[in-house]
Amino acid sequence: MSITSAAEILEGRDSTTRLGAALRRTAAPLVVAVVFGATMAYVATTGLDSIERRTLNAGYIGARVGEHLLLTVAASALVAVLAIPLGVLVFRVPWQAFRTVVLGLANIGQATPAVGVVILLAIVWQTGFATALVALVAYSFLPVLRNTLTGLEQVDDSIRESARGMGMTPNQVLRHIELPLASPVILAGLRTSLVFCVGVATIATFINAGGLGDMIVNGLKLQRFPVLVVGAVLVACIAILIDWAAGLVEERVRPKGL
């Protein structure tokens, strides 16, 4: 094979790689735009009654989307702030009993049906945004905790020994070696947690915490199919967009070479 032919093959592969990366970055927004546009076209061609018009307007939809995003982002931020340090602590503490208790408690939040968590918290505490936030944190805590543990455990012991041999303290090894190497796995857990939160936030409506669940429940109760469809499509679109955005962030912050 000539040098020119080899260069052409490599150039073709590079172009294919760039095309694949471009498609990964644009596919999700394009799908969301098409689905949302088709949904709005369907609504526009449907003769809406007065009840549907009170719900399917920019002000009402914008308020529900804002509440939904606030719940999702606040819960995910709390999960990151709590679960990652706890995962590091569980990894560092040598007691197996401590690890078992922490993972067991996190598993309870994940295994219990989301509606049950929300309703139980509302019964013993109160209704509203704070209760829904606690329920979302409990439900989406496990993926970040487990991925933090998994990511730290996958770091090669020889790398840690080399870092210690260079005079690094345990905290420096954690900050400069272990967490950067574990970051792809941790970010994957955060991405999963975000998508969980988007879906589970729909049930916040049952305890007067707002969100797009209001539209879905109202559509079911009042038998207004357009309202139900718009609410469900919006939740799906937000989940897809958040997963897409989290994937871009994951690519940007991943250490080079991983």
Score class of each variant (00 low, 15 high):
Asn208Ile: 00
Thr127Tyr: 11
Thr205Cys: 13
Val217Ser: 10
Thr148Asn: 00
Thr127Met: 07
Leu234Asp: 03
Ile186Gly: 08
Gln223Asp: 13
Val118Cys: 03
Gly151Gln: 00
Arg175Gly: 13
Trp125Ser: 02
Gly219Trp: 10
Pro226Trp: 12
Thr150Leu: 06
Thr112Ala: 13
Met166Arg: 09
Gly116Asn: 12
Val233Gln: 11
Leu187Arg: 03
Asn218Met: 14
Gly189Met: 03
Pro184Phe: 00
Pro170Asn: 10
Gln172Tyr: 10
Leu190Gly: 04
Ala201Thr: 01
Gly116Ala: 15
Ala204Trp: 06
Leu142Ser: 03
Ala114Asn: 12
Ala245Glu: 05
Gly151Trp: 05
Glu161Met: 06
Gln154Ala: 11
Val200Glu: 03
Phe129Gly: 02
Gln223Pro: 08
Gln172Gly: 13
Trp244Thr: 12
Leu241Cys: 07
Thr202Lys: 03
Val249Asn: 05
Gly199Glu: 04
Val134Asn: 06
Asn208Val: 09
Val198Leu: 05
Leu120Val: 13
Ala135Tyr: 10
Ala201Asp: 05
Phe225Glu: 15
Arg224Ser: 15
Asp156Lys: 06
Glu250His: 11
Ile207Lys: 06
Val198Gln: 02
Glu251Met: 05
Gly247Leu: 02
Ile159Phe: 08
Ile242Glu: 01
Val195Trp: 01
Thr169Tyr: 07
Ala232Trp: 13
Ser183Leu: 11
Leu149Trp: 03
Arg160Pro: 12
Val134Met: 05
Ala182Val: 01
Leu136Cys: 03
Met168Gln: 13
Ala130Trp: 04
Ala135Trp: 15
Leu241Phe: 06
Leu133His: 02
Phe206Gln: 14
Gly151Pro: 08
Gly219Cys: 09
Trp125His: 02
Val137Tyr: 09
Arg146Pro: 03
Pro143Tyr: 03
Glu153Val: 10
Trp244His: 14
Val185Arg: 02
Val144Glu: 00
Asn218Cys: 07
Asp214Lys: 11
Phe196Arg: 00
Ile238Ser: 08
Arg146Glu: 06
Gln126His: 10
Ala182Met: 04
Gly211Leu: 10
Val173Lys: 01
Leu212Arg: 05
Ile240Lys: 10
Thr205Arg: 12
Ile203Asp: 08
Ala163Glu: 12
Ala111Pro: 07
Leu145Trp: 02
Arg160Asn: 13
Arg191Glu: 02
Thr131Cys: 01
Pro143Leu: 07
Ala132Gln: 08
Leu136Glu: 07
Ile203Ala: 12
Ala122Gln: 05
Gly199Pro: 04
Gly128Pro: 03
Ala204Ser: 09
Thr131Lys: 02
Ile207Trp: 08
Ala138Leu: 15
Ile207Ala: 01
Leu222His: 13
Val233Arg: 10
Leu179Asp: 07
Gln126Lys: 04
Val217Trp: 14
Ser162Asp: 06
Val249Ala: 14
Ala122Asp: 04
Ser162Ala: 15
Ala111Asp: 11
Val124Lys: 09
Ile186Glu: 04
Gly211Thr: 00
Thr205His: 13
Gln172Thr: 14
Arg191Phe: 12
Trp244Ser: 15
Gly211His: 09
Thr131Pro: 03
